[in-house]
Amino acid sequence: MTTAPPPGSLLTAENLRKAYGPTLALDGADFSIHPGEVVAVMGPSGSGKSTLLHCLAGIVPPDSGTIMYDGQELSAMNDARRSALRRSEFGFVFQFGQLVPELTCVENVALPLRLNGRPRKEAERAALGWMERLEVDDLAKKRPGEVSGGQGQRVAVARSLVTDPRVLFADEPTGALDSLNGERVMELFTDAARSANAAVVLVTHEARVAAYSDREIVVRDGKSRDMERVV
């Protein structure tokens, strides 16, 4: 499928290929997302979902293919520029192990702002605002080891949103949570993202998590299928 990216797309990828050693993780994958849209990336484990997310987010450069973000070719940028982009325009939520255990929750949430050079006080005030929205402001002074999994994940969501990113990347954000906690996290997450008009790339293998998306694409054997365009 080499159709031109739909007009108005914020982030598009075409014909991505990526190999880790002998294993081909991506074999001609396509992707596109609009501002404010939530797209679920589904597929069996080992299908290349996470690799697609890593490529789209500029964490890993693809071996071939192009990624366009907001009119710029992401796949042609050097590591420093991609890092800067990740710091300022993207937000991330992973499955677990992403909060710095020594920092308090509010310091964790403020971290991306501080990486962008914002003063500590100001960054922590903004962080507290987001923690309130995610209903974890009472945990501000606690360390990640002292809060539950669901709470920790909400802290992580707050952190992903604190820079007002234009694209959010979530890799199995509820993978380590029970369904009740997971759903609450997904609700808060998608609500916050929609109200901020941020695009969300949501990698998951759970249909009930994918149900929070606007549409889904399926990755199988490194190839993507955009279900809307297929149907």
Binding site: A211, Y212, S213, R225, M227, V230, V231
Partner: peptide, 12 residues
């Protein structure tokens, strides 16, 4: 794939 899409539509 079509069926999954339909299921997901319902689930949404």
């Amino acid at each position: 794939d079509g069926q999954r899409s339909e299921h997901l539509r319902h689930m949404r």
